[in-house]
Nucleic acid binder design. Structure first.
Length: 552
RNA sequence: GGUCCUAUCGUCUAGCGGUCUAGGACGUCGCCCUCUCACGGCGAAAACACGAGUUCGAGUCUCGUUAGGAUCACCA
């Protein structure tokens, strides 16, 4: 019972594309069955969510691992929520994390790929052509209900204990006669186009999910809106049209879509198209006062990928962490293959957790630390510099002014030793670890020292300094340097090692480690630091002596 | 409320009927190494949500219960 051609033209206008023409422009891809086409389809509504990167990583791996195609499609059909610059941010974020898109927008103006446009607002004509086709087949109809009417209907439905929605007898515009439609059109009433669902709620359908296996749902019987009054499609319809035309083989998306799966399957069937395979992934969650919840865009700063950049987590660490969340055996792989990257790892989408992983910063920090430890001094310097240039101008200025000095500092126990220290967790945290190397940041007082070394008297500390200074030669290597410290310690009532001391604490003033601690605190203001001998060499004799003199 | 998803150490998880007195990683704790702190090495504590069933045998299969989560828009 389709409407007449005239009425459909009034509904849709009369310069609608022919669907045959469209289909011709989007030929099936020449790919084998084992090459997958995936996509991520974010909305430009604000910042890039870490969950978006997570989903992108999964889709990207899935596609590229199979020698397939990874598409970026911008879903900007909600003009009210759209935010200026958000598309650009999405593109930049993906790029930053090494998620290479084969097709899609590459900046605000250009795009790559033969199946575009990849921005939904630019595909308006395409959707409308298919809506018109559905109208012609009598599988869709105009609905003139106002938002208030729909709202009132929903209220009545829920009050009566029923299922809310535009379906069955509630779908009052479903069987409008041609005359009624024309009359409403004449009256200038705004309308939407709804899909005339052929489904029955009591029927059960089976749908295959690549992560979860076969699942059963009630058939969809909701006459959902496919074309909004602004002429743009809703997600459901755009998804079906785009993924058909673009040849998507696997739709990997958030599990919030699971419940509309019956609808999407039905839509594909109504269009006469083969539906893609679906995989629904659970969202990343966080622990909030003992309860798990989805990361909130508004409440949680860590939901924003920019957060990780600002903090200076290396992007490799973030990706490795996310990969670990997706496939926990990735860390075993990394351990067995330290030189390989996540791209060499055989990612298995079926191994994804179905309940939603919890964001764990302790683990991320561990991965980050391990990664930074693999960097050479020059690499670390370059990475730190890039970070500073973007997020910390003051730090950048310091690096510019003292690059050689910084490299010396960053190289302590790095290139010249087989086990690299893991003091640096993030780029933003490095400065705090090393700022004692800068006199303007070094304000140690006698009182500070006494607080930091409570088990040594001032006299003993002064004696240690005196004993150290007489023999100090800045050209000594590590062994010579330490031999002198030891010599002094032994001659002055300190045990030669902590074990000896703890065996017989009454016999000593402390152990050689106490001697080292006194020197360390005086020189660095901290009770822990990398190799003291190296630090002193970098600082230079003059400054070392000045610092040692603090307690005199 | 309807529909749907999920459930193994604190966290990420391995496990796909016997090889599970449940394995790994991070974290925690202890010991060793050690000039401090680290690094490294070794070790410990730490989990199958609960209840029925199927079976010779259940973490693994079925059903219930409970608890989390998602969804029910002219938002995606």
């Amino acid at each position: 019972m389709a409407l007449s051609k005239e009425t459909i033209d009034r509904l849709m206008g009369n310069n609608i594309l022919a669907v045959e023409e469209i289909e011709k422009k989007y030929p099936p891809r020449q790919l084998s069955d084992t090459q997958y086409v995936t996509r991520i389809a974010p909305s430009p509504t604000g910042f890039m969510h870490i969950g978006g990167i997570y989903a992108a990583l999964i889709s990207e791996r899935f596609a590229h691992q199979s020698n397939g195609v990874f598409i970026l499609r911008i879903e900007d059909t909600d003009t009210k929520r759209e935010i200026e610059g958000a598309t650009d941010l999405i593109i930049r974020s993906l790029k930053e994390y090494g998620l290479t898109v084969d097709e899609g927008p590459i900046n605000e103006k250009e795009e790559i790929g033969a199946y575009g446009p990849y921005t939904q607002s630019k595909r308006k004509d395409i959707y409308q052509a298919y809506v018109k086709q559905l109208l012609e087949k009598g599988m869709a109809y105009p609905c003139f209900c106002t938002e208030e009417e729909i709202e009132a209907m929903r209220e009545r439905q829920t009050k009566a204990g029923g299922r809310p929605g535009y379906y069955g007898l509630w779908a009052k515009d479903r069987n409008l006669t041609e005359e009624q439609v024309v009359a409403k059109l004449d009256a200038g009433k705004p309308f939407v186009i709804r899909f005339k669902s052929p489904g029955k709620y009591v029927n059960k359908i089976a749908v295959e999910d690549i992560l979860r296996g076969k699942r059963f749902f009630p058939e969809n019987d909701l006459d959902i809106v496919i074309l909004k009054s602004d002429g743009l499609p809703t997600y459901h319809f755009a998804h079906v049209v785009d993924d058909h035309l673009m040849g998507t083989t696997h739709v990997v998306r958030g599990d919030e879509w699971l419940s509309s799966l019956p609808l999407h399957v039905q839509l594909f069937e109504a269009m006469g198209w083969k539906a893609p395979k679906y995989g629904h992934i659970a969202p990343i969650q966080k622990l909030d006062e003992g309860a798990r919840r989805k990361l909130s865009k508004r409440k949680d700063p860590e939901a924003n990928v920019a957060f990780y950049g600002e903090k200076g987590y290396p992007k490799e660490a973030v990706i490795d962490y996310l990969m670990n969340l997706a496939n926990s055996d990735f860390e075993d792989y990394k351990k067995a293959n330290p030189d390989k990257t996540y791209k060499d790892f055989e990612f298995k989408i079926s191994k994804l957790n179905n309940s939603g992983p919890l964001l764990d910063f302790v683990k991320l920090e561990d991965i980050s630390k391990e990664f930074i430890a693999t960097l050479s001094c020059d690499e670390l310097y370059a990475r730190l510099y890039d970070w500073a240039a973007k997020y910390d101008k003051e730090m950048q200025a310091r690096l510019d002014a003292n690059s050689g000095y910084f490299k010396q500092i960053l190289d302590i126990e790095r290139s010249n030793c087989d086990r690299v220290r893991k003091d640096y967790v993030t780029f933003s945290g490095i400065w705090d670890e090393i700022k004692y190397f800068f006199d303007e940041e070094f304000h140690l007082t006698k009182e500070d020292v006494m607080k930091l070394v409570p088990n040594q008297s001032l006299e003993d500390m002064q004696a240690i300094v005196k004993g150290f200074v007489v023999n100090y030669d800045e050209n000594d290597d590590k062994n010579e340097w330490f031999a002198k410290v030891k010599e002094f310690a032994l001659a002055n009532g300190y045990a030669k090692n902590p074990k000896e001391y703890s065996k017989n604490p009454e016999a000593y003033k402390g152990s050689v480690s106490d001697v080292a601690t006194v020197l360390r605190v005086l020189v660095t203001g901290r009770t822990n630091s990398p190799d003291l001998c190296s630090i002193m060499k970098i600082l230079g004799k003059e400054r070392v002596l000045k610092r040692l003199n603090i307690i005199n």
